[in-house]
Amino acid sequence: MSIELKLDRPSENIVTVSVNGDIDMSSSTKVRDILAPLFQENNKAIIVDLSGVSYIDSSGIATLVEGLQWSHSSQNKFRLVSLTPGVKDVFEIARLLTVFEVFDTKEEALAH
């Protein structure tokens, strides 16, 4: 399954990345390639919408952990929204659910 990535800038210094498709070994580098440069910009928050992702593997989790690390060193907020049951389960098995800022909707993440 191919992956689709859509970048939006709903307001100044806020970026949302909507991911649609499986994040696995074949597609996680595409997610990384779109996220990495965003942390070089002066963004207040980078929000990743995972509502279109039903499957994520360890390489996808590793990519998001990298994003978290970049956010710590760049002062950008890094937020995940709309985790599907399958994705949430993988985060739970990895014991990472509480490590990220996770929101139910994009609106909540934007308002926070």
Binding site: S58, I61, A62, V65, Q69, V90, I93, A94, R95
Partner: peptide
């Protein structure tokens, strides 16, 4: 060990856990 938050190395954890 999962105490350290870092990318990579989770595949074997998933397999052993499940």
């Amino acid at each position: 060990c999962l105490d350290q938050i870092k990318p990579g190395g989770l595949g074997t954890h998933f397999i052993n856990e499940i």
